[in-house]
Design a protein around this nucleic acid. Structure first.
Lengths: 328, 328
DNA sequence: AACATTTTCGCAAACGTTTGCTGTGGATAT
DNA sequence: ATATCCACAGCAAACGTTTGCGAAAATGTT
């Protein structure tokens, strides 16, 4: 069986294609009687309009592209999930692409987006490429691009970010208020903007509000490195460890469990996280929440603003909030 | 600036549309000289073909739909990630839809798929609806549907599943070989086929190979329930707890940490899992691996077989393998 | 030089919609 | 009775491609 078309229906009913088309969209020009006839046949034929034809004709796909390094990530998947939900509620479709943090794949994904004539793009740039050339084409075409999380370092684009600095400050404040003396602060890849932001804010807060606290700072590229780093620094007996991200946290926690250190008695933990990982442990890890799903909603509304005609370039951030878990 | 079209190029070059079209796809009818001219202009104009037009004309979108309850899931996201990768490599596009385990959303998602004239569908049915009506339409249209993970209970459809029974058997075998005496076995929602399969295989293996082992069996709908259940059963001093899934495992582990039980000394743990969660703890949890990414590749190849013309209905399963972590 | 081939390209239809415009018949108003 | 208007429906073009077929130009053959 083939897909029904307007033509099919029109022939079966002895009507013209345009009449059928209008009837199905409740156009006032069509009488109730024929509307009824058309709709009835359409449902029995299981008619579904061909979006390719519609898009072609109307020159308006309601399709967004979303490019992300990988969906295998606690932060990104909540982001995606929330954007997907918003899209569904607002009758948009979403095309999700993984770049694998590879500029080449990223470029072909962008090409795919263009070929599909997307009406807007959510993009998280791959960390290697600071080259934005592939993205400027969208600007030329007046297709709004909302950068999220990992955003380019230029000003003339729309960005939504988690409040990196604020989150780091909140974490530092929490540590200070608990009168800690010696904290190990573990960060991610030093090249990433997000790392630099969090590092700067953390150090600044610490040194300005509690200069007496002893600070051990280091960087880990993944969980395994965080594990060994934590183990190494334990000899210096910090009373607290701050983890910049989930990845760092999981590594650190493994080291802690390995050494059978009880927390928060023997050592305190605090992290910046989306919330899932911290809740896996007991006591739950105290963390500053950076919500992917909040960011998703923010990104979506920013997109809507752009499509609504706003040419106002903005950089938005979600609020960070401390969630007490008992590990600090 | 607008998107370039074949017409644009043809007018600029004084050629016909068809010539330009053929030149761009290296058709032998076109001379090298004009091919060169066309391609050059096309790249400077940043021409990208309009897939809507192509799909309409060729009546062949290279688009797959993928319906999943939620991407916020360790298993599904590896599945999706792997399918997405295969699609990219094979020049297909993927449309990912979340059903939220809601039959209504599921139905509208299926409608979206039809409107987009997908050439194939990967589907994980929502647990509530045993109603397959929305899916039969695809059969009528000869659009292949590959059900994965949560599959319908009928025979005339293609399914790919993790080896539920085998996984449970492997776990049971591991427990038996370690000479355990009393095991607490925690399962998920009893209504789900996957639960029933794992439960049956586990019980069967246990009773046939080691009838002397004392078995405590219960069901939890989520991590929190697994937590309280584990805590409750601890009074009966099992020496091992088997967790049917990641969700159960995280709940159980929280209870274990809460009671500060050291494992594997005081209690052993074994789970069926995708592998991510077990590696968060130390010692790492021993688990039987059910790989979402393997299942994704399997699903994709099954899809390719269908599209290749195979009318052979098959039910495939991935292999399960025991990964020793030190918790048993 | 005449013809046969091959190379190179254009015409036009088709895919399934949407939509501005035109046309018809009947009802209402004068 | 004629003019006016409205309700209803059809015509046809357009969106950007692909592709079978035919035609012109270039080349080769005798």
């Amino acid at each position: 069986m083939n897909n029904a078309t307007l033509k099919n229906i029109s022939e079966l009913l002895g009507l013209s294609i345009s009449t059928v088309s209008r009837a199905l969209k409740n156009h006032p020009d069509i009488s109730e009687k024929t509307k009824l006839r058309v709709m009835e046949l359409a449902t029995t034929l299981d008619y579904e309009p061909n979006v390719n034809a519609i898009n072609l004709r109307t020159n308006n796909t309601r399709l967004f592209g979303l490019i992300v390094p990988s969906i295998l990530n606690f932060f990104y998947d909540t982001f995606i999930s929330s954007v997907e939900e918003e899209c569904r509620k607002n009758n948009y479709s979403l095309m999700i692409l993984q770049s694998g943090d590879d500029p080449v794949i990223e470029a072909t994904s962008l090409k795919l987006c263009r070929q599909n004539r997307i009406t807007g793009l959510f993009a998280c740039i791959s960390s290697h490429s600071n080259q934005l050339e592939p993205y400027i084409k969208f600007k030329d075409l007046k297709i709004p691009v909302i950068f999220f999380d990992k955003v380019p370092d230029v000003n003339d684009c729309n960005k939504v970010c988690v409040a990196d600095a604020e989150a780091a400050c909140l974490a530092a404040d929490a540590i200070i208020s608990k009168k800690k003396k010696k904290v190990l602060a573990l960060f991610g890849n030093e090249r990433l903007l997000i790392t630099r932001k969090r590092l700067a804010a953390f150090k600044e807060t610490m040194s300005s509000k509690a200069p007496s606290i002893k600070l051990l700072i280091d960087f880990a590229n993944n969980a395994a490195e965080a594990d060994t780093l934590t183990a190494k620094y334990m000899k210096q007996k910090p009373d607290t460890v701050f983890c910049m991200s989930d990845e760092i946290l999981t590594g650190t926690m493994k080291a802690i469990q390995k050494k059978q250190l009880s927390f928060p008695d023997e050592i305190s933990i605090i992290a910046i996280s989306n919330g899932f990982i911290p809740k896996l442990y007991y006591p739950e890890i105290t963390y500053v929440e950076t919500s992917g799903s909040k960011l998703g909603k923010l990104a979506f509304s920013s997109m809507m603003a752009c499509l609504g005609g706003s040419t106002f370039i903005q950089e938005l951030t979600t609020e960070a909030v401390l969630v007490e878990g008992g590990s600090l």
